[in-house]
Design a protein around this nucleic acid. Sequence first.
DNA 1: ATAATAGTGTCTTTCAGACAGTATAGT
DNA 2: ACTATACTGTCTGAAAGACACTATTAT
Lengths: 304, 304
Amino acid sequence: MDRKNKQGLTEKEFLEQYDPSQFDRPSVTVDMLVFSIDEEEVKNYRKLPKKQLRVLLVKRKDHPDIGQWALPGGFVRTSENFEEAVARELKEETNVENIYMEQLYTWGEVKRDLRTRIISVAYMALINSASQNLMGGSDAEDAKWFTLDSQVIKEKKVVPENCNNTKKLVKLTLKDEENEITSLIEITRSLQGKSIKETRQIIKNDGLAFDHGKIIEYGIERLRDKIERTDIAFSLMPELFTLTELQKVYEIILGRELLTANFRRKISRMVEETDEIKKDGDVGHRPSKLYRFNQNWMVEEPNY
Amino acid sequence: MDRKNKQGLTEKEFLEQYDPSQFDRPSVTVDMLVFSIDEEEVKNYRKLPKKQLRVLLVKRKDHPDIGQWALPGGFVRTSENFEEAVARELKEETNVENIYMEQLYTWGEVKRDLRTRIISVAYMALINSASQNLMGGSDAEDAKWFTLDSQVIKEKKVVPENCNNTKKLVKLTLKDEENEITSLIEITRSLQGKSIKETRQIIKNDGLAFDHGKIIEYGIERLRDKIERTDIAFSLMPELFTLTELQKVYEIILGRELLTANFRRKISRMVEETDEIKKDGDVGHRPSKLYRFNQNWMVEEPNY
DNA sequence: ATAATAGTGTCTTTCAGACAGTATAGT
DNA sequence: ACTATACTGTCTGAAAGACACTATTAT
């Protein structure tokens, strides 16, 4: 088509004279929320190791928020798709590849970064514990895993008779051997038109850079939602695992205990029994069978 | 904190010398997918008017894709949040305010726009039919409502024995009195790590600009998902409505018929009966009661 | 035997699907 | 009476929740 615009230009001519720098543009970054599951070393005779949810953070080496901990990420190169940018950064930081990844949300509040208008396209990634200690890229000196704990501190109705106007205070606690980071996020639900609108606000930030507390909190909620409705949890598991280990992962993410019998019934179609049995540190109780993820669970009929 | 970075600058000094233009930045737009429900005029004696899903499109007046139809949207001003940008554009185009709105997804493929790297933060908005014909802002000359129909043309397994590798072909048909636009989208689901990854590709585009076919298709899927799990549907309804009207809205969006008794049971807690009765064009059958949305359905106990 | 975990059977409740049946308006 | 829509009652089966019970290991 050689159709011309108001200035009398064809598409080809238009594209040749197009100068993006005539508009004031925001900067665009990708940030990654990388989750994995940690096994706490417990030497108690007989007891199973406790599991914990972990998040990868890097220490900022420059302004703004120098010295604070941030989600790994960086500016999007103009020649690179988001997924490529995320994968590249993740490879550099943790040496992990070929993992589950999904776009979380795009944060773009005008004042979220002191430098200039910076928009952050956040991704969530899940990696399994087997590949946990593989950090060691060039950028990785200050990349560390932090155990993550999220707790609802307070929940209240703003207008007593209207239950669609609530505020919830969530406290995030991130720890490693040396550091303890906390962040208080206030989540407000209010009626927008006829549907509920959720907004997050940082109340207190002790060690976390930018608005990354919001991103982490939002990521946990997404993870919670998806673990109940999809097979996303298996991205956190190693090739072989016991059903109890799997249950612990669900329990940590959901933040509540599950009844074993019901849990097993629910996930039964997603797993495949193997001949193997968990050996290593097992002591003093019935050994458990090892299972693997059943890729085709969506389309197999139940056996009755 | 007056901590200094490697160049020996304090945060204040750093921010003063910060020049965003030293990095090559993509441009950022917001695009809006605005849904509403249309009542087709049917003059058949007795028959109820058919309902249809509609989408708002604007005709492009400049390159690239001049003359094609696109989602309303525009470049994000540096001083403006996404929601503000979306609300402003929507007000300009349709004169509608205070509606339900949520972020859909951010599209950022390198080659999605011919001009330069353009990232689009897409929002979905729902407006009720009552405010349907309120267009007439300055930008609105070429803004029009199109009825939207989405149909699965083909569904196949790529690898027969692996059911997690499927391709689905969806045909979008958008019509108004003068135009008929079609778009073919191929949705590929493949196993990425241990979870399913979904990607969309435009196969054929007849009248739609850019990759907006993908955005529309993705929006319908989100709408379908949310209408079953939330009260989002009421954003498409006027203040007062009959349960049959509500059911039709569900049916159009879900693309299948529902059983009346079950539907009413399911939504019963979300609605409130009024004393009023639908009058206007009713002929030849039992008149129906009018209902309104019950804002507090989430927290009320069922009455038994 | 005991402690600790692994694993199963079954009763109950809740909810979605199917379908038959009744109700009420205008012509 | 007929037609088209409005609205309800109830049977069914699937899935989720609760809980009691059995199994197996090292010390």
